[in-house]
Nucleic acid binder design. Structure first.
Lengths: 105, 105
DNA sequence: CTTGACGCCTAGCGTTGCTAGGTATATGAT
DNA sequence: ATCATATACCTAGCAACGCTAGGCGTCAAG
């Protein structure tokens, strides 16, 4: 359903989800689905590598939760991640405005 | 400036430009730049292959203009291209709404 | 005891925008 | 005359990224 449209915008989505508080990968996928009313129903093979990428870039931190029998890797936004989120939001606004202006919607 | 954000949305832009009438590749690039106020300043290596792809998909037709000394390949929207443009526009609206809902803008 | 939800992972694929290079004509400045 | 710039086209190959498809393991319900 999404085609290739998501490319380059997934980071914004993940950072925005985690700006509401720490969460593990599977929960992120559910939040994505709920907030978008089912539009973003992303496979794990999309989300997990993206989270790893964001962590390797220093935008996310993670730790393994111990209180549950099922292992969960909890991600949280770093200060750098918050800054990048803000700039990604601004970029998205400019981008979508530019698309609308070009397509004349 | 665009990063990878454009991926999957270029077709929409090109179809929308050509919906205003036939044009050659170089003119399409200029229209893109003007309509987006400079945001979409795309290299030829991006636009020309994309036009070829759209033509091979039957969304565009083309012919070589003879009246000018400089050769120009004039592209025009096919009926199929108009249909696809309409659905791409609808997809873009849904997509941008879903992003805004997820990011909470 | 098997199905399904939960929860994680990664190798490799396909698409796509872009870089970098090439060709050629017209125009304006030096 | 010559050189730079704008116009106008092209393509091989690169890099990024979302996704498929597979795997591993826990837990609850039927």
């Amino acid at each position: 359903m999404t085609g290739e449209a998501l490319k380059g915008h997934l980071d914004l989505l993940l950072l925005a989800i985690l700006a509401d508080g720490p969460a593990h990968g599977y929960a992120v996928i559910e939040s994505l689905r709920q907030r978008s009313s089912g539009q973003f129903d992303l496979p794990e093979g999309t989300v997990y590598p993206a989270l790893h990428r964001l962590e390797s870039q220093g935008l996310l931190g993670s730790h393994w939760s111990e209180d549950s029998a099922r292992r969960k890797r909890i991600y949280r936004l770093t200060p750098k991640g918050q800054q990048v989120l803000a700039s990604r939001q601004a970029e998205w606004k400019k981008f979508s405005k530019a698309i609308n202006a070009t397509v004349r919607i």
